[in-house]
Nucleic acid binder design. Structure first.
Lengths: 370, 370
DNA sequence: GCTTGTACTTGAAACGCATCAAAGGGGCCG
DNA sequence: CGGCCCCTTTGATGCGTTTCAAGTACAAGC
């Protein structure tokens, strides 16, 4: 049970310590038979390099850390997937930590990763980003995901305002006369969606718009109760288009409407926001705006690589990635989970490599339909 | 940008190196004012302990590693959640790695975690567990999740056979005369479910049973096409009860049946297996057997703790955790996601702490209904 | 005033490895 | 046979911590 170390391998193989180290890190420097001998010995002894010592002596780890607020949110998983694939492509490992909706934990893992001399760290931060400037001073490249403020630093976010705009424009296209927006805009992301909706409808005073708060956590149950409430209205009081600020909300709303005998999309159209696989699979298709989680993760890693490879990287880089509206049904849902293709065609970005000037992005070419 | 180290803090604070270390690890040993001084200096300088050096010198990390086959499977996430919460409870960190359905990567991360001197490592392994015995020799506590073979070692798994039995008994209770089981039993877990179904139906030759393979990956699309196929049969050829070996399959089946004008559960009852939140949210409720992912993660960490705390831990411990059948609808789905309560009441275990004798477990007290 | 004890603080040793300047060992040429 | 060069291997050094035996300062007790 005693751990076997590099010196044990060296002794056993009859070579020196440095040679074993070379076998691990610069195999091309060894004579093939020496290498073979050492590898056999390593396997026979079950030697496992001590990563800590390795890091300490070598200075680098070739791995990234990713701190996520929760594990059970589809969007975070898309980010993780994108980040993972991109990281592997560059030969880096990706380690994920779950902050479990807890600021303290988030901070804890962030420091942990930095202290492990990770080559870079990414966070999808919780609501209050007060500490970001402090973290930005750390000697490890860091990228903030799914958040977009004007602080100097590296940020990659979905364009939430555009998401709201897209859905609203969809509603206009479909001839909506009365729109109800459902959801508690507790987080910046949701607030921006509402903003986008309002902006898109600013020129259309003829369209009635109504925003309904939805319980504290935007759950499907919240959606359901509001959906039920809408269903009970007199027919002429009912909206013809409902926007759930969240797919989960939209899914609850649809259930309620259908349960109460209202046809979706026959009488009322319902759209969501999130592109959340967790909320798909219903037998009623749901049109939703998918924030490109996979792309955000990918781009995050690319930004990390950029900082690592450039000796004098830009101080600040803000990226916004456009979204795509799409219709998902139970059947197509799992096909869409295919992570290689998610929202790729809709990727748009413009970054400012100098200063903190904010990037512009417009979503175009959307294959949106109900 | 130069990293500040403990000696910098010591010099700046005018104390010795060892004192700063004590401030970090044994604050109770310091005079309050010394502690305060050091903490201020640490904050002022932005000092971040080098975890690698720390580990190397101290020998332990108080953190666990978890290697998951994929991130986008609800069951894995439940495991991660359970493991996370239990780990935090003991003051341990949890780091998660995504093996991305790749044996090589799985192995890679496993070795990585072991090499990082993690206090313990957990894996939810891919199909072929050939390497397990080799890994079990490693000097780090390891627990295998969601798999149950007779190799010596620590295993925590859902009782998949029981899941099949539960669903089949459900079918019997509901008066099924003709059952169709849909799914490709490519993995051990699914094979066991089928086995459980057959066992439960062994005494009922009057019930017709049919197993239909379902494409390579058990997708919703696979379910859909088989559902459609079932719908097209003559009425007297159609089953009255369909079991999807996977919730995703079941969800596809339901969609197809409903699309083809067959009422669910009016004409055909459909049940799933997985308790998969990803597959909930449909407007048709789905009865499913939920493997207690959260409990498996929890138990896994507890087993790790056991190995850590006992100087002479049992060599082998196999645990099976019972499952619960439940009906989920779009609306109750997110409430069920509440991770504190998942299948807790149905937890059953009996472990053999001596030898490799296999544990018995029976699912009782099930609140199963359609 | 001296001893003993208590409460902190110190600094050297060790953790396991990567690195790199230096040494070793052939082969080739003159 | 000597000198040179190239290919391979060597082993001392240091990475940033923790730990712990030894040290210091101060107070109380005699």
């Amino acid at each position: 049970m005693a751990k076997v170390k590099i010196s044990d391998v060296a002794r056993e193989a009859g070579v020196s310590l440095g040679t074993v180290s070379n076998a691990l890190n610069h195999p091309e420097k060894l004579r093939p038979e020496t290498l073979k001998l050492i590898n056999e010995t390593i396997n026979r002894l079950g030697y496992l390099p001590n990563q800590s010592a390795r890091q300490l002596a070598g200075g680098t780890t070739k791995s990234f850390g990713l701190v996520l607020p929760r594990l059970d949110h589809g969007f975070s998983l898309q980010i993780a997937s994108g980040a993972h694939n991109e990281a592997r492509k560059h030969g880096y490992d990706l380690l994920i930590a779950n902050a479990d909706n807890d600021d303290i934990l988030e901070d804890h893992y962030l420091r942990y990763f930095m202290g492990t001399q990770m080559s870079g760290v990414m966070v999808q931060p919780m609501a209050s980003p007060d500490w970001h400037p402090a973290m930005a001073k750390m000697p490890v490249p860091i990228v903030h995901l799914d958040i977009h403020c004007l602080e100097p630093g590296y940020y990659v976010a979905a364009d939430n305002e555009a998401q709201g705009r897209i859905i609203a424009e969809l509603a206009i296209t479909r001839g909506a006369r009365h729109i109800v927006v459902v959801g508690r805009a507790a987080f910046m992301q949701l607030t921006l969606r509402v903003l986008g909706i309002h902006k898109a409808l600013a020129m259309r005073p003829d369209i009635k718009i109504e925003v309904i708060d939805a319980g504290e956590w935007n759950t499907a149950a919240d959606g359901y109760s509001i959906g039920a409430q809408i269903a009970e209205r007199a027919a002429d009081e009912r909206p013809d288009f409902v926007i759930g600020l969240t797919d989960v909300l939209a899914s609850g709303i649809i259930s309620a409407l259908v349960d109460k005998g209202i046809s979706v999309p026959g009488q009322i159209l319902v759209a969501g926001c999130d592109g959340n696989p967790l909320a798909w699979s219903g037998s009623v298709p749901l049109t939703t705006v998918a924030p490109p989680g996979y792309e955000i993760g990918r781009k995050g890693v690319q930004l990390l690589m950029e900082q690592i490879e450039n000796k004098a990287p830009a101080k600040t880089k803000h990226i916004r990635i456009g979204s795509a509206a799409r219709t998902v049904t139970a059947v197509t849902a799992t096909e869409d989970i295919n992570r290689q293709e998610i929202v790729r065609p809709f990727l748009l970005e413009r970054a400012s490599t100098q200063g903190s000037e904010q990037a512009e992005a417009t979503a175009i070419n959307l294959g949106a339909y109900l």
